[in-house]
Simulated assay, not measured.
Amino acid sequence: MILVFGKTGQVASELQALVPDARFLSREEADLSNPLACGDLIREIKPEVVINAAAYTAVDKAEDDEELAHAINGAAPGAMAKACAELGIPFVHISTDYVFDGGGDQPFSPSHATNPLGAYGRTKLAGETLIAEAGPVYAILRTSWVFSCFGNNFVKTMLRLSETRDTLNIVSDQIGGPTSAHSIAVAAMTMARQLINAPEKAGIYHFSGRPDVSWADFARAIFVEAGKEMTFNDIPSVEYPTPAARPMNSRLDCATLAEFGLSRPDWRADLKDVLTKLGAKA
Rank of each mutant, 00 (worst) to 15 (best):
F232Y: 14
T143I: 11
L159I: 04
T123Y: 01
S183I: 11
A17Y: 00
L87R: 11
L117C: 07
G39K: 04
R220M: 15
I184C: 01
D234G: 11
A37V: 05
P136V: 03
H93W: 00
F147N: 06
E29A: 08
V146W: 07
K124E: 04
T8E: 08
S214H: 15
R210C: 13
S183F: 12
A54N: 06
T231S: 14
L159V: 06
R268S: 10
L252S: 00
A62N: 06
A221V: 14
D234A: 14
V59R: 03
G176S: 08
P116C: 09
P110I: 05
L125E: 11
G78D: 06
S95K: 03
A54S: 14
A280K: 15
Q106N: 00
I196F: 02
K61Q: 10
E229P: 02
P35I: 02
Q106D: 00
A17G: 13
L117D: 04
N52H: 01
T179V: 03
N34L: 12
S13N: 13
A181W: 10
L159Q: 04
L195G: 05
H112I: 02
I222F: 10
L87P: 09
V224N: 12
A198G: 00
C84Q: 05
L141I: 10
V213T: 15
S237T: 15
L195Y: 04
L68Y: 06
R220L: 14
A282C: 03
F154H: 10
E200W: 07
G135Q: 05
C84H: 05
A17H: 08
K124I: 06
I42D: 03
